[in-house]
């Protein structure tokens, strides 16, 4: 990357099929503006995301990981996102304890109708990651 080029982070977004993925879709069809930094991955429920996916993405050099699901109480499978929240809290805490930029990880609840919220989250998270800069894991050898 050249110095004067602006750093555009790469953010992996795990989006729940029943809500956040639809929310992202809505943001797109409504032509809301948000940065092209997000690489979406559709999952059937936020609880499908093994925290190890997050670790793997981070070590693989992804600059940020967004995990988005239905609002508490609205999970298609009733309880999935409650478990998600605990698992996320766990992995985030581990990152914090290891002083590994836990800010690169974000959990957000975005419903199917919240296109604007998706755009806002995507924009703000991208801004935050821009400030953090590139993920240092990207060019590590001794992993």
């Amino acid at each position: 990357m050249k110095k004067d080029e602006e750093f555009m982070p790469r953010i992996l977004a795990f989006l729940c099929n029943w809500c956040s993925y639809a929310g992202a879709d809505l943001a797109g069809t409504s032509r809301l503006k948000y940065p092209p930094s997000i690489l979406p991955i559709r999952v059937m429920c936020s609880s499908r995301v093994d925290p190890l996916f997050i670790v793997k993405a981070y070590l693989g050099g992804i600059d940020g990981v967004l995990l988005a699901g239905c609002h508490p109480g609205d999970c298609h499978y009733e309880k999935g996102n409650y478990y998600t929240r605990r698992r996320f809290a766990l992995i985030k805490k581990i990152f914090e304890e290891l002083d590994m930029e836990a800010d690169r990880l974000l959990l957000s609840w975005i419903s199917a109708s919240e296109g604007p919220k998706y755009a806002k989250v995507a924009t703000e998270f991208t801004e935050k990651i821009k400030k953090l800069g590139e993920n240092p894991a990207k060019n590590k050898i001794f992993l």
Partner: peptide
Amino acid sequence: PLLTFEKDELSEVED
């Protein structure tokens, strides 16, 4: 803890 949950908790890890 990972096999259970409370409905109202951990708001600090939510966006």
